[in-house]
Protein backbone atom coordinates (compact mmCIF):
# COMPACT_ATOMS: atom_id res chain seq x y z
CA UNK A 1 0.00 0.00 0.00
CA UNK A 2 1.16 3.50 -0.71
CA UNK A 3 2.10 5.32 2.39
CA UNK A 4 2.13 8.98 3.08
CA UNK A 5 5.10 10.25 4.96
CA UNK A 6 4.63 13.30 7.07
CA UNK A 7 7.89 15.20 7.20
CA UNK A 8 6.81 18.71 8.01
CA UNK A 9 6.69 21.49 5.49
CA UNK A 10 8.26 20.78 2.15
CA UNK A 11 11.42 22.79 1.57
CA UNK A 12 10.09 23.67 -1.86
CA UNK A 13 6.48 23.54 -3.02
CA UNK A 14 5.55 20.47 -5.03
CA UNK A 15 4.57 20.91 -8.64
CA UNK A 16 0.93 20.07 -9.12
CA UNK A 17 1.48 17.75 -12.05
CA UNK A 18 4.26 15.87 -10.31
CA UNK A 19 2.04 15.36 -7.32
CA UNK A 20 -1.00 14.38 -9.37
CA UNK A 21 1.00 11.95 -11.48
CA UNK A 22 2.57 10.38 -8.39
CA UNK A 23 -0.57 10.15 -6.26
CA UNK A 24 -3.17 9.72 -8.97
CA UNK A 25 -2.96 5.95 -9.19
CA UNK A 26 -3.39 5.56 -5.46
CA UNK A 27 -6.35 7.90 -5.44
CA UNK A 28 -7.96 5.91 -8.25
CA UNK A 29 -7.55 2.73 -6.21
CA UNK A 30 -9.06 4.34 -3.16
CA UNK A 31 -11.93 5.64 -5.24
CA UNK A 32 -12.34 2.20 -6.82
CA UNK A 33 -12.92 0.69 -3.39
CA UNK A 34 -15.15 3.55 -2.29
CA UNK A 35 -17.34 3.08 -5.34
CA UNK A 36 -17.61 -0.65 -4.88
CA UNK A 37 -15.59 -1.33 -8.03
CA UNK A 38 -16.88 1.27 -10.49
CA UNK A 39 -13.78 1.80 -12.60
CA UNK A 40 -15.03 4.75 -14.60
CA UNK A 41 -16.49 6.56 -11.63
CA UNK A 42 -13.29 5.91 -9.70
CA UNK A 43 -11.18 7.66 -12.33
CA UNK A 44 -13.73 10.43 -12.51
CA UNK A 45 -13.67 10.98 -8.75
CA UNK A 46 -9.89 10.92 -8.60
CA UNK A 47 -9.65 13.49 -11.39
CA UNK A 48 -12.32 15.61 -9.75
CA UNK A 49 -10.58 15.52 -6.39
CA UNK A 50 -7.24 16.47 -7.95
CA UNK A 51 -8.98 19.18 -9.96
CA UNK A 52 -10.29 20.63 -6.71
CA UNK A 53 -6.78 20.67 -5.29
CA UNK A 54 -5.51 22.50 -8.33
CA UNK A 55 -7.39 25.68 -7.49
CA UNK A 56 -5.73 25.99 -4.11
CA UNK A 57 -2.50 24.23 -4.97
CA UNK A 58 -0.18 26.94 -3.70
CA UNK A 59 -1.64 26.51 -0.26
CA UNK A 60 -1.97 22.74 -0.45
CA UNK A 61 1.58 22.23 -1.69
CA UNK A 62 2.91 23.85 1.45
CA UNK A 63 0.93 21.60 3.75
CA UNK A 64 2.76 19.06 5.80
CA UNK A 65 0.78 16.27 4.17
CA UNK A 66 -0.68 17.14 0.76
CA UNK A 67 -1.39 13.47 0.09
CA UNK A 68 -3.50 13.23 3.19
CA UNK A 69 -5.39 16.33 2.20
CA UNK A 70 -5.95 14.87 -1.27
CA UNK A 71 -7.39 11.74 0.33
CA UNK A 72 -9.77 13.84 2.41
CA UNK A 73 -10.90 15.77 -0.66
CA UNK A 74 -11.44 12.51 -2.52
CA UNK A 75 -13.56 11.02 0.25
CA UNK A 76 -15.63 14.18 0.54
CA UNK A 77 -16.06 14.26 -3.24
CA UNK A 78 -17.22 10.66 -3.13
CA UNK A 79 -19.70 11.26 -0.35
CA UNK A 80 -21.17 14.36 -1.90
CA UNK A 81 -21.24 13.28 -5.50
CA UNK A 82 -24.49 12.56 -7.24
CA UNK A 83 -24.37 9.63 -9.57
CA UNK A 84 -24.35 11.02 -13.04
CA UNK A 85 -24.44 7.73 -14.84
CA UNK A 86 -27.94 6.59 -14.16
CA UNK A 87 -27.41 3.38 -16.03
CA UNK A 88 -24.72 2.53 -13.53
CA UNK A 89 -21.28 1.20 -14.26
CA UNK A 90 -20.74 -1.59 -11.86
CA UNK A 91 -18.21 -4.28 -11.41
CA UNK A 92 -18.23 -6.78 -14.22
CA UNK A 93 -16.19 -9.82 -15.05
CA UNK A 94 -14.23 -7.77 -17.56
CA UNK A 95 -10.99 -6.82 -15.96
CA UNK A 96 -8.82 -3.86 -16.52
CA UNK A 97 -5.16 -4.48 -17.15
CA UNK A 98 -3.33 -5.23 -13.98
CA UNK A 99 0.29 -5.98 -13.27
CA UNK A 100 -0.77 -8.32 -10.52
CA UNK A 101 -1.85 -11.84 -11.46
CA UNK A 102 -5.58 -12.16 -11.05
CA UNK A 103 -5.85 -15.54 -9.44
CA UNK A 104 -9.10 -15.05 -7.62
CA UNK A 105 -11.03 -12.37 -9.44
CA UNK A 106 -14.44 -13.72 -8.57
CA UNK A 107 -13.83 -13.42 -4.86
CA UNK A 108 -12.47 -9.92 -5.19
CA UNK A 109 -15.45 -8.92 -7.27
CA UNK A 110 -17.74 -10.44 -4.71
CA UNK A 111 -16.13 -8.31 -2.05
CA UNK A 112 -16.42 -5.19 -4.22
CA UNK A 113 -20.07 -5.93 -4.90
CA UNK A 114 -20.72 -6.31 -1.21
CA UNK A 115 -18.85 -3.11 -0.44
CA UNK A 116 -20.96 -1.33 -3.00
CA UNK A 117 -24.10 -2.34 -1.18
CA UNK A 118 -23.01 -0.69 2.06
CA UNK A 119 -24.03 2.90 2.89
CA UNK A 120 -21.51 5.38 1.57
CA UNK A 121 -20.18 6.45 4.94
CA UNK A 122 -19.77 2.87 6.09
CA UNK A 123 -17.78 2.14 2.95
CA UNK A 124 -15.67 5.20 3.54
CA UNK A 125 -14.98 4.08 7.10
CA UNK A 126 -13.83 0.65 5.96
CA UNK A 127 -11.69 2.01 3.13
CA UNK A 128 -10.02 4.58 5.32
CA UNK A 129 -9.46 2.17 8.18
CA UNK A 130 -8.35 -0.92 6.26
CA UNK A 131 -7.04 0.34 2.93
CA UNK A 132 -5.62 3.69 3.91
CA UNK A 133 -4.66 2.21 7.27
CA UNK A 134 -5.85 5.25 9.21
CA UNK A 135 -6.54 5.08 12.91
CA UNK A 136 -9.97 5.63 14.36
CA UNK A 137 -9.20 9.23 15.27
CA UNK A 138 -7.83 10.04 11.81
CA UNK A 139 -10.78 8.41 10.11
CA UNK A 140 -13.13 10.34 12.32
CA UNK A 141 -11.39 13.58 11.38
CA UNK A 142 -11.63 12.88 7.64
CA UNK A 143 -15.31 11.99 7.82
CA UNK A 144 -16.20 14.51 10.51
CA UNK A 145 -17.58 11.79 12.70
CA UNK A 146 -16.94 11.01 16.30
CA UNK A 147 -14.47 8.21 17.05
CA UNK A 148 -17.33 6.29 18.59
CA UNK A 149 -19.33 6.58 15.38
CA UNK A 150 -16.35 5.34 13.37
CA UNK A 151 -15.98 2.30 15.60
CA UNK A 152 -19.65 1.45 15.47
CA UNK A 153 -19.87 1.97 11.72
CA UNK A 154 -16.81 -0.20 11.12
CA UNK A 155 -18.17 -2.93 13.32
CA UNK A 156 -21.60 -2.77 11.72
CA UNK A 157 -20.18 -2.72 8.21
CA UNK A 158 -17.92 -5.70 8.80
CA UNK A 159 -20.83 -7.57 10.28
CA UNK A 160 -22.96 -6.79 7.25
CA UNK A 161 -20.23 -7.98 4.95
CA UNK A 162 -19.94 -11.19 6.91
CA UNK A 163 -23.67 -11.78 6.64
CA UNK A 164 -23.76 -10.82 2.98
CA UNK A 165 -20.83 -12.99 1.92
CA UNK A 166 -21.51 -16.06 4.03
CA UNK A 167 -18.96 -18.79 3.41
CA UNK A 168 -17.08 -16.64 0.92
CA UNK A 169 -16.13 -14.34 3.75
CA UNK A 170 -13.71 -16.90 5.11
CA UNK A 171 -12.29 -17.59 1.66
CA UNK A 172 -11.49 -13.93 1.24
CA UNK A 173 -9.09 -14.20 4.13
CA UNK A 174 -6.96 -16.55 2.03
CA UNK A 175 -6.51 -14.10 -0.82
Amino acid sequence: MDRTTTTGNHPEPLEFRDFAAARGRHLVRTAYLLTGGDAHLAEDLAQEALGKLYGSWRRVSRMANPAGYARTVLVNTFISHRRRRSSGEHVTDTFVESAVPVADPALRLTLLHALGELPQQDRAVLVLRYWEDLGVEETAAVLRLSPTAVRSRASRALSRLRDRLGSEYAELARI
Binding site: R25, L33, E43, S98, V100, V102, L112
Partner: peptide, 9 residues
Protein backbone atom coordinates in the same frame (compact mmCIF):
# COMPACT_ATOMS: atom_id res chain seq x y z
CA UNK B 1 -6.11 -7.44 -3.34
CA UNK B 2 -9.40 -6.03 -4.63
CA UNK B 3 -7.82 -2.63 -5.15
CA UNK B 4 -5.45 -4.25 -7.62
CA UNK B 5 -8.38 -4.58 -9.99
CA UNK B 6 -8.66 -0.81 -10.18
CA UNK B 7 -7.85 0.88 -13.48
CA UNK B 8 -4.27 2.01 -13.90
CA UNK B 9 -4.38 5.25 -15.84
Amino acid sequence: ASAELAPAP
